[in-house]
Write a protein that binds this DNA or RNA. Structure first.
Lengths: 242, 242
DNA sequence: CGAGCTGTTGACATTGCTCAAATTTCGTGG
DNA sequence: CCACGAAATTTGAGCAATGTCAACAGCTCG
């Protein structure tokens, strides 16, 4: 709820009360709505703030509401009946979530940090599609990109070694989203346990792998949650790109 | 090429020369074009037949052409530089492939059997989208479903044991696509090596797992490529559904 | 009939997991 | 600002699941 309230999230972002002031508009599907029609967006969208650790929705819940992250970070995951968890993605401000597959959400979503969300009811989203056909276009593109990412992740999960998994993960975190360059200073805000569940490993293996990579000089770890990559080229060779 | 020629594929399907006679229309995105407008489809679509084993396109190739399978089976995969392979999906008649992510295909596609394809240039597809908005809708739905399937596969690859992987695989092959029932007679036309590369295992492990499951009475194997599931409920329990 | 796949089985090696414990970091309240 | 407890991270030791290498059997197709 908290319509128009500034985000309390600790990650610097805040959602503007009006879509035309949204700081992540360029990344969001909302950018497919012309700037001078953002009022139409405002009319349809609600807002919600959630504290770190809270659930946004759970696998199996009735769908019907979709979200755009305006501030904070989110993890998506699926569980097995005995509690084993696979994290399927980490989302950032501007990312979209909540399209359900057959009436129910296909995965669970949790706030990793404090989070501010833009909320659409699915019916309103359809209205938006009709009023601004480009939005559906944009959505299809996004879905397609996500599919490519998912396939890359299958390759990682099914065929890479622990070393390769961790290095691929770090490379991805360091890649610029616009050009195809890399930032050698990588921030890794999530816990080792989240990383493990994302890479299909155990916490212990992730930790040991970090240690081994550090001892080999492939990475430096100023703190547990930031990593420096002194030789990206070599890392790319080992990780098989990504 | 072979415009209008009956498919030589060994799997029973054949593509009609005209879309209104297509036997897999109901599964394809084409079903979003009203039946009395299929002539418009005909005007845009080309056809191609490929022999088993031939490549349809490879990861990195310039995109620009998309396909619908009218007969035969296709595998999608990604490779690591050293040749390790991850199969990301098996496709059947009616399935769609070839949307590229940023100008280039994100994965490779190969005919597993003889295959007949409907071919669209991407520009023509856009025309189709404009003429029949429902098609884009259908496409978005399909992309969304695929995403859900991909996430299910990540859970399998990252968190399931060999036993669970094989059983999940068999269950999926046995699931009806309409209702949520299962057919206990499962056909497994692909090689053990394809199965292994799909499940993130080695051929040997797949083979040994089949043997072990047979000895436990969980499956029966009339032949290497057909499996009978005498107790689906028990299998579901072990596999963690799917 | 023979070459070449495909599938199965065996023996052994190795990666990554499990269980356990020490250490460091972080958030909270005083 | 400091102290304390909880949580996160790291490390160690042993082990199990799965991979590797090798041999062999069964089928298919020319």
């Amino acid at each position: 709820m908290n319509r128009g309230a500034p985000a309390k999230a600790g990650h610097g972002g805040s959602h503007a009360s009006a879509c035309d002031q949204c700081t992540v508009r360029h990344r969001a599907i909302c950018s497919a709505v012309d700037f001078d029609h953002t009022a139409d967006l405002d009319a349809l969208v609600g807002h919600r703030d959630l504290a770190a650790g809270r659930s946004i929705f759970e696998e199996g819940d009735d769908g019907g509401t979709v979200f755009n992250i305006s501030a904070g970070e989110v993890r998506l995951y699926k569980l097995l009946p005995d509690g084993r968890r696979q994290i399927t993605g980490f989302l950032r401000p501007g990312d979209f979530l909540g399209l359900s597959s057959h009436g129910a959400y296909a995965y669970s979503a949790e706030a990793m940090t404090n989070v501010s969300l833009c909320v659409f009811r699915i019916g309103d989203l359809e209205k938006l599609f009709d009023a601004f056909p480009k939005v559906r276009n944009r959505m299809l593109e996004k879905a397609n990109d996500e599919l490519a990412v998912a396939q890359e992740q299958m390759l990682l999960l099914g065929r890479k070694t622990a070393r390769e998994k961790v290095l691929s993960f770090l490379l991805r975190r360091g890649r610029h989203e616009d050009d195809d360059g890399y930032n050698p200073e990588v921030s890794v805000p999530m816990t080792r346990s989240d990383i493990a569940d994302y890479l299909g490993l155990t916490v212990e293996t992730v930790s040991r792998t970090f240690t081994a990579l550090r001892e080999e000089g492939l990475i430096e770890t100023p703190s547990a949650h930031s990593v420096f990559l002194p030789n990206i080229k070599r890392i790319k060779d080992i990780a098989g790109a990504f």
